[in-house]
């Protein structure tokens, strides 16, 4: 009996329960099957298709070619779209970072008893459909929208706020703000106020303390937020489509367009370019901050 208990304690403390009721590999199988067949397989298919040739008449043949990539990376029209996508993602990331920092700092440091409610208010848009939020911006910024009717009421001239870069940026920034605020808030909350206090005690001014203590310590949070915002902005289809219109075509819209005209090989190559850009950002993040930090935001 004692031996039996001893054996059980030993086996469990090594992390390998001898009497598992389901072997761990069997528990993992459904997940592995799902990811392999419906995530890794389609990605592999796309890699293959991106090197296929589109022959006259429109069908795609298994003849190796680099044309799809060359087309995307040399034609000015497509290059412009790729750079516009990168540019919008970059500007969105910078604006959200600048806007979020003071707000996250406030949320982390406020002594308000409504703190939980305030964090909930940040989360709220996060959970409201992107279509609805883009729609709301149409209502607010449109030519007959709220902003313009207020301007007209004041006797001021109309401003064009949608169907251009401004519209897309408004939408993207508002939609992606929570992705930046939450990791920043978590990161700043983790900085002990005593650290800032000791810097102050040692004679640092409040600005110096903020710049030399708070900002560096919150960098991982800022990097996590920047990664999430940048990746999401790169992949967003709805916001540019609804608020930017035909003048603001980005890679995801181009991919859709190419599928609609049945040029799957080119759509696959464009997808791979998008994945490649995202991958570079993710690897960079992993080197600088560590990917495991991403796990923290939903836990």
């Amino acid at each position: 009996m004692v031996k039996n208990i001893q054996r059980r304690i030993n086996s469990s403390s090594t992390g390998n329960l001898k009497t598992r009721w389901i072997p761990p590999y069997i528990m993992l199988t459904p997940g592995i099957v799902l990811i392999t067949f419906f995530f890794l397989l389609p990605l592999t298919l796309m890699v293959i298709y991106s090197f296929y040739t589109r022959v006259l008449g429109g069908s795609i043949e298994p003849i190796f070619t680099l044309d799809n990539y060359l087309r995307a990376l040399t034609r000015p029209l497509y290059l412009k779209i790729i750079f516009r996508t990168l540019w919008l993602a970059l500007v969105t990331t910078i604006i959200t970072l600048v806007l979020s920092y003071p707000l996250s700092y406030f949320l982390a440091r406020t002594k308000s008893k409504h703190k939980n409610l305030l964090v909930l208010a940040v989360l709220f848009p996060f959970w409201t459909s992107i279509i609805i939020r883009s729609y709301a911006w149409l209502v607010l910024l449109g030519n007959k929208g709220v902003v313009n009717s207020v301007l007209a009421g004041l006797g001021l001239p109309k401003v064009q706020l949608i169907w251009n870069e401004t519209g897309v940026l408004f939408g993207l920034v508002q939609i992606l703000l929570p992705y930046m605020i939450l990791p920043l808030y978590a990161s700043i909350s983790g900085i002990k106020e005593s650290i800032e206090e000791s810097a102050r005690t040692l004679g640092a001014g409040s600005l110096v303390t903020f710049m030399r203590m708070t900002v560096p310590l919150s960098l991982p949070g800022a990097a996590t937020g920047a990664l999430l915002v940048f990746i999401s902005a790169m992949g967003s289809f709805l916001t540019p489509a609804l608020l930017g219109g035909p003048s603001q075509i980005v890679i995801p819209m181009l991919i859709y367009e190419q599928i609609a005209i049945l040029n799957y090989a080119f759509a696959a190559a464009l997808s791979m370019i998008l994945v490649f850009i995202v991958l570079i950002i993710v690897i960079l993040f992993d080197r600088l901050v560590g990917l495991e930090r991403l796990g923290g935001i939903y836990g």
Binding site: I35, P42, L45, I231, A268, V275
Partner: peptide, 21 residues
């Protein structure tokens, strides 16, 4: 990592692949 990857790979890319599959 493979199971977390669908969060990072843009959904439009996954959509393009699954469409063909």
């Amino acid at each position: 990592l493979a199971m977390l990857a669908p969060f990072i790979v843009p959904w439009i890319v996954q959509a393009t692949g699954l469409y063909r599959l």
